[in-house]
Design a binder for these strands. Sequence first.
RNA 1: GCGAUCGUCGUCCAGUCUGGUCUAGGACACCAGCCUUCCAAGCUGGUAACCCGGGUUCAAAUCCCGGCGAUCGCACCA
Length: 562
Amino acid sequence: MWRDKLDTSVTEKVISLAKKRGFYWQAYEIYGGVGGFYTLGPLGTRLKDNIIRVWRKIFLEPYEFIEIESPTIAPYIVFEASGHVGSFKDAMAECLKCGNKYRADHLLEEKGVKVSEATSLEILEKLLNEKNVSCPDCGSVSWKVSSFLTMFQTNIGPYKENVGFLRPETAQGMFVEFKQLYEINRARMPFGVAQIGKAYRNEISPRQGLIRLREFSQMELELFFDPLNDKCPYLDDVKDIRMNILDEEKVRNGDTLPHNVNAKEAVERGFVREEWLAFMMALSQKFLCTLGIRPEFQRFKAKLEGERAHYSAQTFDHEVLTGKFGWIEVAGHAYRQDYDLKSHSIKSRSSMEVVEELAQPIKVKKKLAYVDPSKVKRDFGDKSSEIFKLISSMKPFELAELLEKDGTIIANDIVIGKEYFIFKEVEETISTRKYIPHVIEPSFGIERIIHAVLEHSYNEKEDRVILSLKEEIAPYRYAVFPLVKRDGLDAKAKEIYLMLKIRGLSVIYDDDGSIGRRYARADEIGVCKAITVDYQTLEDNTVTVRDRDSWQQKRIAINTLL
RNA sequence: GCGAUCGUCGUCCAGUCUGGUCUAGGACACCAGCCUUCCAAGCUGGUAACCCGGGUUCAAAUCCCGGCGAUCGCACCA
């Protein structure tokens, strides 16, 4: 069954449940609320922690990938090197008549005027006004150009000129520390580094609740690999995971019926360029399934050339179908190539290369040139010392290369020919290869996942709400209730509650109202099992355990609860 | 950011057009007590709101202006 629509009312219901029971709500409400900022409540933070735990279990633990926590503020130069200063800064053209804003470069390109990212604001404004570019909305031809930077800017220390940015992604923290991490990880390749933390984007108009935030949480993994040896050894492990993939061709043609393939087939059939990318996509699907989102509500949608981030050679959005918001992107899987490491390497002038020891050392023949001092002295006399000085600053193989190419060496206008050198050919053994690793990056937005998971866990049964959260992520697994609050049942229930709590289980206690009301309350926040203490408990130390989804009850002995 | 629509207890809704009767009402939820031997039962009581600021007026939830926020559309979403 292939569905492309969900009941839109579920979204509203989830949002109001989230607020009512404390998963999440808009922040700063006492001051009228500020767009793009949300607070996670007590249940939301537990859910988030559990989601993160599952993610680590799926993406990091089996492969011994490592995790770091880097600062959320970085100096200007970091995002200059990464390309964010350039591509996060859009030149906005504002129509002076109707006030609508457009991307200045888009408007000009429609007129056939090519501009680059480096084109200054003044020139853009001049071009727009001179070329009579008309406003798509009102037709006016007078423009004002200004830039809008979607990164939050701040100052580091007391100096205005020392600009810093709140990171728009956690990834750069891993790239700038790459060399150190590579060493710490004992130079293993391929290897993965993850970071879980906040990122900030000053969206122009954030909407849709948790879907587009100005401050949000990411779980990102940078998988570094050798582009000449890009086999992923784990493809067989994920062969049973079949993904719905809309490749570039389908997206271009507007075809929404996806291919259904596993990672290996996705690569073989040319949908996905890199094995590691396909592998991460498969893990991503496994991850969302573990969180309770069924595969038919998931798909991977390729980003077309112009839609991709500046660093990406191929990107798939991992999307989940929701009610009101339709398909939402909960993760992006990007092939970042060596874009970031290379940029940081050039900007910082520090090496980002890794060294590979070759299995078979390669023998390379090399020509070396040595000067013949006696000939030089004989023919150049007093000027010899100058010549020796120059020549000694060069290595023998460099001299040989130059002489091969030009036939002469020129030192302070003195031309020295080949005949003053003695050539030697040596065989050198090369046992290493240096390269800048390529990167596959799965990047998850936690808040979006929280929302998607809640929508897909939301059920109604006989006018009651049941949040069928998987055991792995439910904020509480157990609830303990006394059937009634007297005759010692409450004391016994509390005893059991504490026993479970001491064992580290997530458990709540509730003795308020009727037993039915408590079951209902527990169902609504996704408590998996309700343990009820009744009169029989006092006689034979058994309790009833009620399942949240089936409402079935089983009587079991207290000592088998653990 | 622009345009349209909108903003009342935690939630949903009444009241706004036609200013006074609103000390802002109801339902559900929540809290306290009673009751209660398995699925939101019942009884009693309680907490709780006119988005913010300014203006008009004898009088503003109600009319006007500004701000903030929300929804939708446009644009943006690396």
